[in-house]
Structures are given as C-alpha cells and as structure tokens.
Computed example of a mutant assay.
Amino acid sequence: MIITLTLNPAVDVSTTVDRLMPEHKLRCAAPRYDAGGGGINVSKALRRLGGSSLCLFPSGGAMGALLEQLLAERQIEYRTLPMSGWTRQSFVVTETSSHQQFRFGLPGPTWTEAEGESILAELRSQAGPVEYVVVSGSLPPGLPTDFCARIARIVKDLGARLVLDTSGEPLKQAVNEGVFLLKPNVGELAALVGVDKLELDEVDDAALTILEKGGCEVMAISLGPAGALLVTKEAAESKTATRRGILHVSAPTVKKQSTVGAGDSMVGGMVYALQQGWSYEDMLRLGVACGTAATMNPGTELFHKDDVERLLNWINQQAGSAFC
C-alpha cells in the first residue's frame, strides 16, 4: 500500500484573464477547481497511471468539504482528520495576452499541538503492509520544524520507505533522521548542503555528500527543462573514478502551459514505478515523462496518460540516458 500525506492541502482555483491591470475590474474565465497540495497531487498522479493509494490529509470548513468532494469524484481513496481552521485555497491566473502565469498561495490554518499529534497517531495506526509513505508539500503554520523527522521515524517503525518532497529546515531535519528517496530541485539541494547556489556540474557531488552521510538512499534532483538527475546509494559507495549509480535523463521539449503540479507528477510517476518493481533507471524516466506531461496542460490539471506514454517513448529512444 502507498500512503500519501498532505499536511497543507488546498483547493486549487485556476482561471484566465486577458491582461492583469491594477485598479481595474478584471473579467475572468469560468474557474476550474481541483484538489491540491503535494501528497494529494501525487495520489491523483498515481490514479491516472492506474495505481492506487490512501490519501491522508486534514480537512476543515467549507473548503475542506469541497476538497473531499473533488477527490471522491476522482474515485481516490482518502481519509481525513478534522481541523479547527478552514482548508486553504490557492489561486492561479494565466494572462492570455502574454501566456504568463501568476500563482497565489494562501497560508494554511495554524495547527494546534493536538492536531499535529493526531496526524502522527493516524500514521502510526495504519494496519496492513505499507510499502511507501509519500510526504509532499509545505508544512502549515504551527507545526514544529522536526515534524517530517518525526514522520521519518514512524515510517521506519512501519517497515515502509519514506519518499519526501519538501524544503527548508523541515527537509534538513528529516535528512538527519534518514529517508529513502528525496526529490529536491537544485535550489533546495543547494540549501541542504549549505551553499547559495549550485552549477549543473556540481549537483551530483552535492547529492553524494547527502547520500554518503546516510541522509537518503536515492535522490532524484529536478533540473527543470534540463530533466532530472538520479544519484543512488551505489554511487555513494563506489570508490572508483567513474561512479556507477548516477543517471541523467533529459526532458522532452514541449509547449509549456503550466508548471503547477509538475514536481508532484514526477514523484507520482517514480513511486508508481517503484511499486511495480521497475529499475531506478526506468523509475526516473517515467518520473520525467509525468512531470513534463503535466506542464502541457493549463492551470492545475496535471497530466494525461497518453501524453506520458508518448513522452516516455521519446525518452527511451534517446542516447546517453543510461547509468554511468
């Protein structure tokens, strides 16, 4: 079983307008509503690929009820914990005259200590074999920065593997505890190793410093339009000049409409591949295909499976995408 945990879920609202102008009443297109938040997007991606998961998240107020309705309509299994505050909204506006996208993320409700403990207790109580726990997205106000590290300890007790996609101090503390798979972007990796920025030729060495310290077993670094880089435990343990276990996969060039949910789509593709028993190489290729396919659709729609299959075929045909 795969469990996705979303600590700061949202109802994603997306629309278009001809041009954004201050102090004018702007006539927008009819809005689209989607269930959003990192782990929820991962569950949606898994569903589109033919997989399944238990989607765990807090829910409160009218927005929480709408979020649950949106997931039920997609036939995604979920379990909620009540919140005293309302589930947040995020808002995406695409300016049709320039094709620029403007993303407005509202803060989530402030958690109480008791609400934080209820999430951890729910995770501890999971019955049946749990293979992977995916924690994706930001921490809401009120949770301590060691919350993801505490989750990592619980996941180990469950005998499962933690896949983590977050940032900042919560990411650092979780890495100190040790997780299975990390999915940072280059900026997040730079912060993790304590530097202002990383050039592309420095990314693999930065990742290796984390793996060598036991921070994770596998790291998939999102490189944006350049694709993704995979660094595995095998590379960290290699003593040869040419390390095995480092893989770069280029992203296909597509007409980009929105980047919302692209990272979560990549995570969903990778976790699906892992559950199917695919190799790390094929895992990364599917992840890149899913993440790239998500950028081809407007607003917060994520990807279409036929686009993923077409892009994956392109990736598999490219030379040079092999373990080095």
Rank of each mutant, 00 (worst) to 15 (best):
E234F: 00
L192K: 02
F91N: 08
G299I: 05
S238V: 00
Q101K: 00
V254N: 02
H304K: 14
A35Y: 01
T87P: 11
G268E: 07
T259Y: 06
S52G: 13
G261P: 01
I154N: 01
I154F: 07
E122M: 12
V11S: 02
L81S: 09
L7Q: 08
Q276K: 14
N185Y: 05
D307Q: 14
N41H: 10
D306N: 12
R32W: 01
T259H: 03
G287A: 05
G215L: 03
V163N: 08
D165H: 11
I151A: 03
S136A: 14
E199P: 01
E177D: 03
G39H: 10
L302D: 05
A251M: 06
A289K: 06
I246T: 09
K305Q: 14
E199S: 14
S53T: 01
K213T: 07
E117K: 11
E212Q: 15
I315L: 07
A45V: 09
S118L: 12
C55E: 02
P58F: 08
V195L: 06
T240A: 09
S98L: 12
G116D: 13
V93C: 10
H24P: 00
E301M: 13
A29P: 00
T242R: 09
L274K: 09
L311W: 09
C290V: 07
C324T: 12
S222F: 05
V203T: 12
G142Y: 06
I40H: 03
I154T: 04
